[in-house]
Design a protein around this nucleic acid. Structure first.
Lengths: 125, 125
DNA sequence: TTTATCTATTGACATTTATAGAATAGTTTG
DNA sequence: CAAACTATTCTATAAATGTCAATAGATAAA
């Protein structure tokens, strides 16, 4: 239902319980690429890893949908895992060479944004 | 038409000429609040100020639309300027006390995101 | 004086993205 | 066998963005 970007900062508290802040979701794509560069992982594992980064409030379906889109772009590749685990079969996602190139572009963008936010924070004082 | 977020990093060059990167637009709202906290300004002036921050690729109508939404939220207040200038009448936007509160929340969010991006950049190495 | 250019803001429409909630389904523990 | 956990997908809806065009006053050039 509602996206909560514009005007998010003053949304009522009851509403924002357990929900993520607007900038978190905007780095979801590079965060997934970075985690998958380190090693291939399953969607479900990624949910935990994002949690560890403080991004755990993003809805699972957003994460899975993003993964499928990254696969459509050929930045990641997935296979159904053959070995048996606790639960239903799961997909293993891995970064492709194209995904590595995309991540390099993303790295520059993250750097640029990092500097921009520094500037903005300085100007608040 | 297309928003260029998902998959942005590998968009063809011709396409991305003069267009902004995905994270730039996601800090538009706080950037406007920060500039208006420093002093009241017109929309057109804000376009120049954003340019100076390296955010000049955002389309003017996005900026004006965001300003009107911030006014609907009562975070900023606008008045038509009475004095004559070079051109048609223009609106002067100013931050309201509610806008100051919202900016304080945004400040925390910017800080959080700043730390998150630091973490992500470290993990790329 | 008509034309172009710069200043300044608004509106409509198509496209894309995000969110929530439910559906599906296998496995393990009580 | 029911509950809880693992794991992924689908659908409906709401909201944000991009693009293009429209409106309009002031000034400089032709």
């Amino acid at each position: 239902m509602p996206r909560h970007r514009r005007g998010w900062a003053m949304g009522n508290q009851s509403d924002s319980a357990g929900k993520h802040t607007p900038l978190t979701v905007s780095v979801l794509e590079p965060a997934l690429l970075i985690l998958l560069k380190e090693q291939p992982r399953h969607g479900y594992t990624l949910l935990t890893d994002l949690e560890a980064l403080g991004m755990g409030t993003i809805h699972p379906s957003s994460v899975y949908r993003t993964l499928r889109e990254l696969e459509r772009l050929s930045w990641v590749q997935s296979d159904w895992e053959t070995i048996q685990t606790q639960g239903p079969p799961r997909r293993t996602y891995a970064l492709t060479p194209q995904g590595e190139k995309a991540l390099e572009i993303w790295r520059q963008e993250l750097n640029k944004t990092h500097r921009l936010i520094s500037q903005l924070l300085e100007r608040i004082e």
